[in-house]
Simulated assay, not measured.
Amino acid sequence: MTEPLRLSKRMSELGLCSRREADEWIARGWVRVDGIVVSELGSKVLPSQRISVERQAAAEQSKRVTILINKPVGFVSGQAEDGYQPAVALIKEANRWSEDSSPTLFHPTQLRSLVPAGRLDIDSVGLLVLTQDGRIAKHLIGEETSVDKEYLVRVRYTKGDKLPDSDLRRLNFGLTLDGKKLKPAIVKWQNEDQLSFTLREGKKRQIRRMCDMVGLKVLGLKRVRIGGVKLGNLPEGQWRYLGADEQF
């Protein structure tokens, strides 16, 4: 690869920050290419060139928070819609989990640029990540993400007594959505009416649509894990900070 590409894109590729953060840093004069400050947005670089950032950028990035919330039914993940509140409305001191061990103090400025890194539909509950850190957002929802997500799904079979083993195998690998074959999943019974789904992709209402294709009606859906971070005992409607020792 020898073609020049946008500096902000290259910074994102290198894992330094998100493209939006890169543009902010470039505009503030916090980015150097081969030791020379580059402050013009849209500047291009070669892959062989060395990119560094000023200490101010690293200091600002370290202040950015990542919050884990146990989203209840009736809240949307992102922007408010159709009269429903976004999950970020729950992020206030009164709803912070009393057992959160993080020393971080809550401040309303932490709500700025706090965006969901992945979604849960309005009828689903469980682990939702909200972050100010573009690196985390890219890691969780970028096209190349390898972070798996685990869900517990309560179901009822509508075509007889029991889901055939052949359809369970199709849930693991063999279904197509929106004209594309789904990536392999891990789907297994937890008990007689609950399945565990582990996915590495997140198409819109994917699990509900997968279940519908094999005659399963979803009665409840809860996300319990994203990579190495578990929902654990976090109560519904409450939140905590991502711990310094936790990694997705």
Results as ranks from 00 to 15, higher is better:
166 S>A: 15
173 F>C: 01
63 K>Y: 02
215 G>V: 04
213 M>G: 01
76 V>F: 04
157 Y>I: 06
29 G>P: 06
206 Q>E: 15
158 T>K: 13
168 L>I: 11
77 S>C: 11
126 G>N: 05
195 L>A: 09
122 I>M: 07
127 L>D: 12
25 W>G: 04
134 G>I: 03
183 K>I: 00
53 V>I: 14
199 L>M: 05
2 T>L: 12
124 S>A: 15
11 M>F: 09
115 V>G: 05
39 S>Y: 00
97 W>K: 07
63 K>H: 10
196 S>I: 12
196 S>P: 03
205 R>M: 01
28 R>D: 05
234 L>K: 11
208 R>V: 04
245 D>T: 14
182 L>C: 15
117 A>L: 08
104 T>V: 13
97 W>Q: 06
101 S>V: 10
25 W>F: 11
147 V>G: 02
124 S>H: 03
170 R>Y: 02
222 K>L: 12
20 R>E: 07
23 D>N: 13
22 A>C: 05
108 P>S: 02
79 Q>T: 15
184 P>M: 03
1 M>G: 15
217 K>A: 13
158 T>V: 03
50 R>K: 15
159 K>L: 14
100 D>C: 07
31 V>F: 01
220 G>H: 08
5 L>F: 00
180 K>N: 12
193 D>R: 09
70 N>V: 09
116 P>T: 08
230 K>W: 02
212 D>N: 09
102 S>A: 12
107 H>D: 13
135 R>T: 13
144 E>C: 00
32 R>M: 11
29 G>S: 09
203 K>Q: 12
191 N>F: 03
25 W>L: 06
216 L>Q: 04
234 L>V: 06
135 R>S: 08
80 A>W: 06
81 E>Q: 15
197 F>I: 06
119 R>W: 09
184 P>S: 06
35 G>T: 01
173 F>K: 11
28 R>I: 00
142 G>P: 10
62 S>P: 07
84 Y>T: 02
211 C>K: 08
102 S>K: 07
126 G>F: 05
59 A>I: 14
30 W>A: 04
106 F>H: 05
112 R>M: 02
92 K>Q: 12
36 I>C: 02
88 V>T: 14
45 V>S: 03
15 G>Q: 07
170 R>K: 15
129 V>C: 10
164 P>N: 03
112 R>S: 10
212 D>H: 13
12 S>N: 11
61 Q>P: 01
59 A>T: 12
134 G>H: 07
175 L>T: 04
107 H>G: 04
40 E>Y: 00
200 R>D: 00
162 K>N: 10
107 H>P: 01
67 I>Q: 05
104 T>H: 06
132 Q>D: 02
163 L>G: 06
105 L>A: 10
119 R>T: 10
215 G>T: 02
195 L>P: 10
35 G>Y: 00
64 R>Q: 14
189 W>F: 11
165 D>C: 03
166 S>I: 09
218 V>E: 08
182 L>R: 08
28 R>V: 00
219 L>I: 07
188 K>N: 13
129 V>S: 06
228 G>P: 04
216 L>R: 09
149 K>I: 03
237 G>N: 11
228 G>C: 02
161 D>W: 01
21 E>Q: 14
141 I>L: 09
218 V>T: 12
161 D>T: 12
127 L>A: 09
85 Q>F: 05
148 D>S: 14
138 K>S: 02
82 D>R: 13
